[in-house]
Nucleic acid binder design. Sequence first.
DNA 1: ATGCGTAAACCGTCCAGACGGTCTGGATCA
DNA 2: TGATCCAGACCGTCTGGACGGTTTACGCAT
Lengths: 194, 194
Amino acid sequence: MSRPNPVIKDTLLDAAETIAARDGVARLTFDAVAAEAGVSKGGVLHYFTTKDQLIEGMVKRTATRWRDYFKAAYDNEPEGPGRMTRGLLKSCFTDAQTWTEALRRAFGSVFAALAHNPALIEPMREAYTEFYHYVEQDGLPPGVAESVTTAMDGLWFYWVLRLRPVNQGDLDRMRGALELTLDDALKSVAQAAA
Amino acid sequence: MSRPNPVIKDTLLDAAETIAARDGVARLTFDAVAAEAGVSKGGVLHYFTTKDQLIEGMVKRTATRWRDYFKAAYDNEPEGPGRMTRGLLKSCFTDAQTWTEALRRAFGSVFAALAHNPALIEPMREAYTEFYHYVEQDGLPPGVAESVTTAMDGLWFYWVLRLRPVNQGDLDRMRGALELTLDDALKSVAQAAA
DNA sequence: ATGCGTAAACCGTCCAGACGGTCTGGATCA
DNA sequence: TGATCCAGACCGTCTGGACGGTTTACGCAT
C-alpha cells in the first residue's frame, strides 16, 4: 500500500470527534487523540502532520456525510415541487432516534474548526451552499422551502449546541406544522399552474 | 467603591469577544485579552481569576442580552395569540442591518464555552428555556410558533456559524413566507374561537 | 485642610505543565 | 534492501495561574 490507510484515518477522526464532544474542543490534542484511538502520538502525526490537517479531515468527512444525506433524501423522493423539502422532512423529522449521539459528535468538527481556525469550515460551507442551491430551486413560492428547511436545521442546531432538549413530541409537533405549510404551498403552486 | 468596577469588566468581556471572533476561540488567552483591552495580564486576572470565570462572564452577559431582547420584542407587541412570534418576526426579521458584527461576536461566547468547558453554556440554556416557555404558550396551533421562531433562529445560526451569508433579500423572502404561515394560524385560531 | 492607615485595584514576573511538531529508531512488509 | 508504518523520546514555546509588589482611593482623626 503506497497511500495512507484510510481505515485508520477514519479511526483517528472518530477518536478526535469523541474527544471534542466529550471534553470540549480545547482538549482536542494529538496526545488525547492518540490515547483515545489506542495508538501513539507518532502514529497520529503520521496521518495528520498538522492540527489544521486533522481538523480539516474532520470537517471534510462531516461535510461529505451531510452532502450524501441530503442528496439521498432528495433522490428518494418523488419528483415535483418541494422535492428537497419533502425529502428532508421525511428523512430526518419523523423519528427522533435518528438524532444520534454520533451525529451530534460529527457536527462537533465544525466547532473544532471555528475554535482553531475559522477558515477550516470552508468544506462545510460548500456543502451548505450546495444544499441551499437545492432549496432555492425547490419550486415552491418564495421563502417557503427556505423557511421549512431552516426551521428543521434550527432545531438541529438547538440540539447540537445543547441549547434545548429535543424529543419525539417536539419533532411531531413541528413536523405537523411544517407539513401544513408545505401542503398549502403545494396547493398554491398547483393552482398557479392551472 | 468596594466592588469590582463593572465598567472595566465589560471592557474585558468586549476584548475577549473580539479575540474569540477574530482569531478563533483557541487564541482566547489571558495575555491576549490583556493586550486587546490595554491592561496587564494581572489586571485581567484581578477581575476573572480563572478562565472558567471569564467565559462564564461572557456567556452570562450574552444570555442576559438575549433574554432582554426577546422580552422587549414580546412587550412591545400587542396582546393576543402569536405575540412572541409576531414580536420576534418584527424586531429581528425586518432589517438586515440589525444583524451586526457585535451580535455575531457576542454569540461567540457560546462557542468559547463549548470549546473550553461545555458546562459553561448553562446560562444560555436557561435563557433559551425561558424563551421556549414563551413560544410554547403563544396561543397558536401546535408547532406553529415553534416552527416560525426556530426558522428565524436557524437563519441566525447559519449566519453566526458563517455557514451561509444572509442578506436583506433572504430576510424578506423568509419573512414573507413566515408571515403567511402566521396569518393562517391566527385565522384558524380566530375561527376555532368562534 | 492635612496626614495617615487600610483596603482595593492593578502590575509584572515566575513557574510547572501542556502543547504542537521534529526526529530517530525499530518493526514489518514487499 | 528499501520503503512504509508507527512508537516514543525530545524540544521550544505558550498557557493558566500564583504571587509579591506598587499605586490609587477613601475613611477618619486631628
